[in-house]
Computed example of a mutant assay.
Amino acid sequence: MYRKVFASKVFERKVVVVTGGCAGIGRALVLRMAQAGARLAVLDLDQHELDSLTQHLADHLNCEALGLGCDVADAEAVSKAIARVIERFGGIDVLVNNAGITHRSTFADTELAVFQRVMAVNYFGALHCTRAALPSLLQRQGQIIVLSSLSGFTPLLYRSAYNASKHALHGLFDTLRYEIKGSGVNVMLVCPGFTATDLRKNALVGDGSLTRQPPLAVGKVASAQDVAEAIYQGALRRRRLLVLSNVDWRARLLARFFPRLFERVLLPRISGLKPQSRR
C-alpha cells in the first residue's frame, strides 16, 4: 500500500513536456500523466487540437496544461516553445520525445525529401527538444523519455528512412546517457511494437504524399493506452530501456545472432504486406 501511495505522488506537480501529444501514444501519455497530477506542456502541429486537449485536461482532470503549436523539426520554433514552457512553469522535469512520422516505400522508390523529412522529425526533433530542455532537466534531475521502436533493433521492410531514424536515436541517447552520468537525469529509450495509432494510417509513400493503402497486416497490435501505462510505470522506475511485451523476442534474438534465418523466417511476416510504389 505504501508503495502505491508513493508511486501516485511521484509526478504530482511535476512539469512534463510531451511532443506529438495530441494523438496516439502521446495523447494517452498526456492523459496518464495528468491523472498522476503532473502539469503538462503539449507540443504538436495543430493549435485547434491542442486547445481542445488542454481544455479537456482542465475540465475533466483539473490539470494545468499549456498547448503549443510547434514543428519539432524547426530548431528555432522548438527553442521558443521550450522557453515558453520554462517561463510558464518554472522548469521541466520530464521530456517525452514522442513526435514521429513514418513511410511505406522501397528505398529505390523513396525520394530524398522523404528521408530528410523523416529524419528531421524523428531524429532532429528529439535532438532539438533535448538540447533546449537539457539545462532545466539537469537542474531538476529530471527524465528524458524517447520513443524508439521495434525497428530500433530489428529491420522492417519498406521503412528504410524510419528504421534509420530510430537507430540514430539509440546512438544519440545512449551516448547522452553516458555523458550525463551522475547528473541525476535519467534517459529511457522505449521500444513499442506495432501500436494502434494514426502513425501507420498517415504514413508517407515514396513521393512524399500520404498513403492510400490501409495499414499493413502485422502481428499483435497494442493499444496506445497500454503503451502509455507501460511508459508511465517505466518512468516511475527510471528505466534505461523499455521493450514492450508485444515486441517479438524471437525477432530480436534472430536479427542479432542469426540474421540470415531472421531474413528468411520472420522479416516478411513482421514487415506486413508489400506496398505498391508511389500511391
Rank of each mutant, 00 (worst) to 15 (best):
Y2W: 04
A7E: 15
V10C: 03
V10W: 02
F11N: 02
F11P: 00
K14Q: 14
K14A: 07
V15D: 01
T19F: 08
G21T: 08
C22N: 15
C22Q: 09
A28C: 11
L29S: 08
V30T: 09
M33E: 05
R39Q: 14
R39F: 01
L40V: 05
V42G: 02
D44L: 08
D46M: 07
Q47N: 04
L53D: 03
T54M: 05
H56K: 12
H56F: 11
L57E: 00
H60M: 06
A65L: 06
D71Y: 09
D71G: 02
D71N: 15
V72P: 02
D74H: 10
S79E: 15
K80D: 12
A81Y: 04
A81I: 06
A83R: 08
A83Q: 14
V94L: 13
V96E: 01
V96D: 00
T102V: 13
H103D: 07
R104F: 09
R104G: 01
S105F: 02
Q116E: 15
H128C: 07
T130D: 09
P135T: 06
R140Q: 12
Q143E: 14
Q143T: 11
V146M: 09
V146W: 00
V146P: 03
S151M: 10
G152T: 05
F153M: 08
T154F: 01
T154A: 13
L157K: 13
R159Y: 02
R159D: 04
G171M: 12
F173L: 10
F173V: 04
D174C: 11
L176K: 04
Y178Q: 14
Y178E: 13
E179H: 08
E179P: 05
G182D: 10
G182T: 06
S183E: 03
V185Q: 01
V187F: 03
V187T: 08
C191A: 15
G193I: 01
T197Y: 03
D207F: 02
D207M: 06
G208M: 09
S209C: 12
P214F: 06
P215L: 07
G219S: 08
K220C: 09
A222Y: 06
S223Q: 07
Q225T: 12
V227F: 04
V227T: 07
A230C: 09
Y232D: 10
A235V: 05
L241H: 14
L241M: 11
V243Q: 08
N246E: 14
R252Y: 09
L254Y: 07
A255C: 13
A255E: 06
R260Q: 12
L261E: 04
L261M: 11
F262G: 02
V265T: 14
I270Y: 02
S271T: 06
S271N: 05
G272A: 09
P275N: 10
R278A: 10
